[in-house]
Every structure is written in structure tokens, then in C-alpha cells.
Nucleic acid binder design. Sequence first.
DNA 1: TCCAGCATGTAGCGATCCTACACAATGAGC
DNA 2: GCTCATTGTGTAGGATCGCTACATGCTGGA
Lengths: 308, 308
Amino acid sequence: MLDLERLRALTAVATYGTVSGAADALHVTTSAVSQQVAKLERETGQKLLERNGRGVRLTDAAELLVRHAERILALVEVAQSDLEAHRGTAVGELSVAAFPTAIRGLVATALVRLRHEHPRLRVKVCEVDPIESLPQAARGELDMAIVQDWNNEPLALPDGLAKGHLCEDVADVALPADHPLADRDSVELKELAGDSWISSTADSVCYDWLTHTLRSVDSEPRIDHMAYEYESQLALVGAGCGAAILPRLGRCVVPDNVRVLPLRPLLERRLFAVWRTEAARRPAIRATVDVLRAVAAAQVPDLTQRPT
Amino acid sequence: MLDLERLRALTAVATYGTVSGAADALHVTTSAVSQQVAKLERETGQKLLERNGRGVRLTDAAELLVRHAERILALVEVAQSDLEAHRGTAVGELSVAAFPTAIRGLVATALVRLRHEHPRLRVKVCEVDPIESLPQAARGELDMAIVQDWNNEPLALPDGLAKGHLCEDVADVALPADHPLADRDSVELKELAGDSWISSTADSVCYDWLTHTLRSVDSEPRIDHMAYEYESQLALVGAGCGAAILPRLGRCVVPDNVRVLPLRPLLERRLFAVWRTEAARRPAIRATVDVLRAVAAAQVPDLTQRPT
DNA sequence: TCCAGCATGTAGCGATCCTACACAATGAGC
DNA sequence: GCTCATTGTGTAGGATCGCTACATGCTGGA
């Protein structure tokens, strides 16, 4: 009889291309994965991995088995999810990835309520940029990813994932206090064409989005500085290094030498929770999304109406 | 992660209704099955079995899990079968059930050829009446069942099973040597209406078939004696106890005090091999069916043209 | 009331699986 | 061309798992 853990080991090798990559993902040693696959080879009577340079290559038989294994493992996840739904209560472990402003502006508060309302549910939060968390969720390394979707750039969802809308958030522009436009009530993005910009680091969705957005008003946007944390970006803005886009959700204290102005038209992002469709029926998923929505709803006035 | 062996244990309990029945089917002790299910309960966090009188009853959660498990286990079998097909050669173990005349008339010879042509295939034969072997094959306790199908009574195949035709066989009637019709070249069944009959035992398809067949010529057939083995039936015929239907396949030596006459019209049975559709792609299945057909074809003249 | 039948719990033994370590093979950098 | 980092496989030992045998508890019929 085939063993699901062994099938998972093989699919992990197929996914990551190397035995050690699979071992990392499964949190075991390479030796363990190697032995699991070797056992699978003995059981099936067929060679599954072949040495290929320093790595391995899957044989045709292994590719075939992986295709079956993916269907089987998906069905197993549906069964587990269905069984948990039958139980009705949110229990077990739920690993959630979120980007920084969502963690402090939404998830932290939600965790308090979740711990209170679902004491048997253990939510593990990890700060991961959506650029990473989406594929991780698709691969099953995460149960839920909290991601964003700017109004000028829709979210591309990998196969097998479902999303649930959480709330809207508005982003303003942060300018040095001595900027010519710093005393305006609001500003249009195109008025800032030619300005120097401060962005998130290049391995984040915010960087991709900012360059894309600025290109609509400025053929050659100048991104001179990059910092992943907004607090650092604001320090750079205060030092007169340029402008930055600053979401309202999870906003830190703005230094005195920085002015924050609303943009015209509003620059909005939508927040989504994303999960695998196989796990959709888990009460843990539903409960977490519900609480996230409730927390978000309580903050909507703050986010969309605050003068700045 | 769910474990397939544990799921199999639960489905066996669902199938057989009792823990000990499941244990028998899985060839382990009741304690082992009980522990497996208990572990499943801990993993899923839900009660699966409830004491019910001296036995157990499956909870709703267990019923739900069984439905999923059946789909998963079927998919696993397809994967294994597909993988073996990819390998191309017939290997591993194949458990085959056949009724007595098929064993000596067909399977024994086929085993010799199979052992020669597919040395890595181990075929295990067990004599089981089709009345038992069909459900056993459907439940996965057997890989193949060799069954018969009389020309006046088609075979009802349970869901999930496929069949392959092997050959035809003809049955004659055995009469005491001093029977008034014993010297005829052939005889019609209705000429024997009112005669006493010797049948297979009541727990066999042959008994069911014989009573059904005789009813078409005799409203109240007299079945005075029953013996599972034809050799015993012929001894009874020779002792003047009645008539018997005697297939040509695997026919033993006929005693001197018994005459065997062909029936008009021919009483034919068709032989089939039956297997689960999930295992249909196994080369072991295909190879065995092919050899059975070849052996049968070599005997067809003997079976259908022999004067008696 | 006793007993047969069924399920569960426990102790112990063997198998399994994982980690740590050693070793082999490859390919990139100097 | 040599060295070394990277990757995969093999082996020994310890922890865990899973099974059997046996004891115990419960139920329903004789």
C-alpha cells in the first residue's frame, strides 16, 4: 500500500527540483527524503529518481506517480477539511502569512478576538510579502495568505486558490515638510512627476506596484531609495530624500518633518484573505476570515475618512 | 496527515459492521483495528465509533470520512495500477478465485504458462464459488474472480467490476447406465421432467442455476441429493439416485455405470474473468486474462465437439 | 445467572523512521 | 587543475509506531 507521507515526499521533490529543497519544505533531513523515495521505489518496483549532475531528475514513472499523488493529496485535504467542517468548531493549527501593515493594523487585533472566540484554534502568523505568500499558500506551506490588490492593478490568483475580500485601505502621499506642495489639502499624483521617490525593497509587491503606478504619470520615475519598513521610508522622506506612498492601515507615527496628503483621485488597495480551495470548508478558515472582516469593518471609518 | 492504512481499517469496519469482521478481512487482530480507529479519532478530534449493543455503530463523522476514504482508496488503486502499467511487465501478487472445474480445466494449465512467461508474477489461486468470489473481488479481497454465466441466466456484475470473456463450455446430462434414455444419442431437458436430480450444494451458484433451469421444464423439480464435487455427484448418479448436469470443462473420469448424453439444445455456460475497474490497467491482470484465453482456446474443440 | 461474543486497554516485541555522520559525485571558482 | 561548496546516498543508533497476546469490561441470549 502506498503511503501518503512518501507520496508527499516525492511531490515535494518534484516541486522543488532537489531532494534537499524538498527536505527543507517538509522540515526533515535530506537523508529522510532520500530514504522515503528509495522505499517508494522498492514498493513500486520502479526507479523514480535519477542522478542528474549534482541534483536529481524524475523518471517518467515518477512524473506519472506525482500526477496521481497530487490528485490523491488534494482529495485527502478535502476530506480533512470536510471532516473539520462537520465538527463545526474551529480547531487545530492555521498558519497565516500577512504583509507588515496588515499584521499590525488588522491581524494583531484579530488574533485577540480569535483566541477568545476559538480557544482551540492556534493561529501562527508569519510576516511574508504577498509576492512570496501566494505561491507558498498554493504549495500548501501556508494555510492562509493576506494579500493586497491595488485599484489600478488586479490580483492574479494562482490555480487552486480562493480569495475573500476583507476591506479597503487608502494610501496617501508623504512629502518632506518643506516640499512646495506640503501645505496643500490634497495633491494629484501627476503633480509629483519628476520628484524623487522612496519605495519598498525590490522583492516586494509594493515595489512592482509603485514603479507601475508612477509610470502612468512619469515616463522615467526616479526611485532613489528603498526601505522595506515604512518607518524607515518616512525617515528618508523627512530627510528630504523624496516622496513616498503611505497606506493608512497600520500606519506608524508620522515624524514632524513629514506631511501626509490625500491623493486625488483616491489611491485605494483592497485586502484579501487567500486560501486553498481544498481547505475552503475548514471552520478555521471561515472563522478567521469572519474575524478579520469584523476587525476591518470596525476600522473602516478610520481608514477611509481620516483627514490624513 | 491521514494514514491510508487507518482509513482502510475504518472502511473495513463500515463494510463488515463489526471491528472483528474488519480485523478478519484485514488479517489482523481486533485489537489492531480498534487501535487504528482510536488513532484516527485522535487525529481528527472526533468520535468515529460508538458502542452499540455488543458491536459498534459508525458516527456521522465516520460515515462522512468513509465516503471520502472510499474515493481516496480507489484513486490510490488506480495510481498503483497505472504505475504498474507504465512498468509494462506483470509483477507482484495476483490473488485469483475460481470454481473447481475452472481450476482443474483452465487455471492449472494457465499457471504453468504464467510462471514461465511472467516469472516475477506470483499468482495465488483459491477455490471459491462465484456466489462468494464476486463480492470478494468487489471488496478488494481478491484481485480476480473466474465466474460462469449460463446461457439462460445472465451474470449480474456488481458496481466497480469489469469482466473479460474467456471461453464457452458445454454441459451434458449424466444418467444412470440403466436409465430408459441412457442409450440415446442426445436428450431434451424436458424429457427428464419428473426425474430426481443431484445438485451442487445450496451455497453455490450451480444450485441456484439448476433449480432455476429445471423450473422451466418441471414445475416442481425434485432435488434429492446435493454434493459440491462432481465426482461425488457421479457416484450418486451411478447408484441410480438421479440425474446430474455435468460440464465438460475439468470433467473427471466418468464411472462405467454412468452415461453422459449431450442435451438438445446445447446447455452452454460462458466463463469470465472479473476484476476491479481500478486495477484494470495492471499488466498482471491483462497477462493473466491473455493466458487464460489462450489455454481456453486450445481446449475449445475438446469442450464443444467431443461426442460426449 | 451464566456464558458466548464483541470491543477496549496494556505490556512487550519487532519493524519502521528519523537524525547524525560519513562518504561519493559533480560543477563552479580561483 | 585543484579546491571547495553543494547535493545525494548509505549506515548506526535511538525514538516511535504498530502489532500480538492477554486481560478486562460490557451486552444480550440461553
